[in-house]
């Protein structure tokens, strides 16, 4: 099963639209020679400004659409499903219908969001006429650029991490099943370690009590725990194993393989946390800054009209 990515959506529909928009804008900018020099207040500058503002509204609306589940029919409680069906069209026909209305899928919205966001760089930059300064206008511009650049990271993350996450889960595991399995291995290791010396027991106990999966922002993002007790336990067991009596070796190998298995599961669980963090953390920048940008933009527009 291969579905189109957010960049390929509908055979690059929004790529085409955004490209046309950008090319047209650059051409217009190059051919237009206002007497005052290029700036936001020329008629072309206003046009760019209005277009950019409209795009911003479309981009913000994506965030709204994502959080709402629109219903086109009257909202009924679907659990009360005894009502007659006659007025609902066949789902297969309906599907063809709503797929054609690309606006109905969030997939289409995101594809448009992505390409229009890129187009905004060109349109807004041309709108400035390359006039920058220490003022609210340039602040709005800078905030916009930060939001868009964080969006680029988002595209990268969305296209890259899902495959890695799937590979890390190997078919049927989930994060929760990994944790359950780790817990189970911990219990096994505790029991198995009892017949050995105190230092081996201590190593195993430490691995059980102090191994962290996830945790603070940095740990989540890097899948790293300094001196991870589980990894250390595996290393130390390797060394300690050498000094054991022959008749203890079989049960020791048993313990060792449990700990080694646990280490690989811990690594995979941390990777899963890491991928999720890397898929998500940029939104903490992208979304609030877009609100900040929107605020700055409103101030910018009001200011322009106030000081006309």
């Amino acid at each position: 099963m291969q579905r189109s990515t957010l960049l390929e959506y509908k055979n690059y529909r929004y790529f085409k639209i955004a490209s046309l928009l950008m090319i047209a804008a650059v051409m217009a900018y190059l051919f237009d020679q206002p007497a005052t020099g290029a700036y936001g207040g020329s008629w072309l500058g206003y046009l760019f400004g209005i277009l950019s503002a409209l795009i911003v509204i479309a981009l913000i609306l994506y965030g709204v659409r994502k959080r709402l589940t629109p219903m086109r029919t009257e909202q009924r409680n679907l659990l009360d499903a005894s009502s007659p069906q006659q007025d609902i069209p066949d789902r297969r026909k309906r599907e063809a219908n709503w797929l054609r209305h690309h606006g109905a899928t969030l997939h289409g919205w995101l594809s448009a969001h992505t390409y229009l966001g890129v187009a905004l760089i060109v349109l807004a930059t041309l709108h400035t006429g390359f006039e920058f300064g220490w003022n609210i206008h340039t602040l709005a511009y800078a905030l916009m650029m930060v939001v868009i650049i964080s969006g680029f990271y988002g595209i990268y993350a969305y296209l890259r991490f899902p495959r890695l996450m799937t590979a890390n889960m190997r078919g049927s595991d989930t994060f929760d099943t990994l944790l359950l399995e780790i817990d189970d291995l911990d219990k096994q290791a505790s029991v198995k370690s009892l017949q050995f010396s105190d230092d081996i027991c201590a190593i195993v106990r430490k691995a059980r009590q102090e191994t962290l999966i996830g945790g603070n922002f940095f740990r989540q993002l890097t899948a790293y725990q300094r001196n991870c007790p589980t990894a250390r336990a595996v290393q130390q067991l390797q060394v300690l194993g050498k000094s054991l009596e022959y008749d203890q070796l079989k049960s020791f190998d048993d313990l060792y393989s449990v700990m080694a298995h646990k280490e690989s599961l811990v690594r995979r669980a941390r990777l899963d946390v890491m991928y999720r963090a890397r898929l998500g953390f940029w939104l903490y920048l992208h979304a609030p800054l877009s609100i900040a940008f929107l605020t700055a933009l409103i101030v910018h527009i009001v200011a322009i009209f106030f000081y006309w």
């Binding site: 990515t5 629109p70 086109r72 789902r91 599907e95 969030l106």
Partner: peptide
């Protein structure tokens, strides 16, 4: 119930941002 009462089809499919 496949969102049978909703003319726009199943909400899960419609709400997937990456079309997965």
């Amino acid at each position: 119930d496949l969102c049978k009462d909703n003319a726009m089809g199943p909400a899960c499919v419609r709400s997937c941002p990456t079309g997965a």
